[in-house]
Write a protein that binds this DNA or RNA. Sequence first.
DNA 1: ACAACCTAGTTGATACTTCAACTATTTCCC
DNA 2: GGGAAATAGTTGAAGTATCAACTAGGTTGT
Lengths: 152, 152
Amino acid sequence: MTEPRWLDAVQQRSWRAYVDGSLRLTELMDRDLKSKHGLSISEYEILVRLSEAPERRLRMAELAANASQSRSRLSHTCSRLESKALVERGSCPNDKRGVYAHLTDEGFAVLERAARDHVETVRSYFVDVIDPQDLDAIGRAFSAVIKSLDSA
Amino acid sequence: MTEPRWLDAVQQRSWRAYVDGSLRLTELMDRDLKSKHGLSISEYEILVRLSEAPERRLRMAELAANASQSRSRLSHTCSRLESKALVERGSCPNDKRGVYAHLTDEGFAVLERAARDHVETVRSYFVDVIDPQDLDAIGRAFSAVIKSLDSA
DNA sequence: ACAACCTAGTTGATACTTCAACTATTTCCC
DNA sequence: GGGAAATAGTTGAAGTATCAACTAGGTTGT
């Protein structure tokens, strides 16, 4: 068994800051969205993707890929969103297996309000506290991470 | 109601890369640790903190703060770890309310094996795909995020 | 010394995620 | 055109997280 390539002190410091910071940031945003708008982060993400799609609707599989969620999880989450009347499911003309998720007007309204608060939180605890050059570096770095995950 | 300060295109690109990348990275690591070593990420984190503490033990509250988890969550997770014999709970001499969580020898052995794999994953999908200067930037940036969360 | 308050930790109910199994439809390919 | 294999989506069970309520022990002030 070969000795693992442990991280050096500098790498470890960055890695740990990231792990801890992102964990706490996510929790804050989740609590925030939940208390003010009754949405979890993953519900919010789904509404965002739908709102940006043509006709505010997407096939389930596409939506799942878009939001980096499993199909099962999306299915459950959509059921909850549907019971809150924020999303409607409809069938797909060309593919009888297919299902469209469609953002309702109420869903759009809820999202609009939530987004206004959310962006303020994103600024307060992320964008505005990070040096713009470091923010660029984060963009580059995580794009590379995504690329490596895609080709995994 | 004032117009929110929306993110510009560059900021948004970084923010989204981070959100998506970190979500997917966490999921990969969770699945990886679970399949190879039967540990979830948060179980792993707890074992790490314990392994680094003097005498491999910590008070529950300290451990919770250390791992950025709620006390409730830690309590549940510890129960699971205890039932796997990786952690033991013991009472605290000075404070009768207090409970020590203590890493067992078996817990240490499991952690050692898991860490060897884990560091390899951290390298493959994070450290080694990121430019060292960008990695530094991540360290700076998330330290600032943590600071802003602390003073919130 | 005792009443009010604070801190440590656990518990149980509820909500959410994950995983494997399942149905229904479509695609491949001989 | 028909059977095997792949794809779309859902479901239920089991595992994990969150929240509020709770027990018990400590701290403070009079």
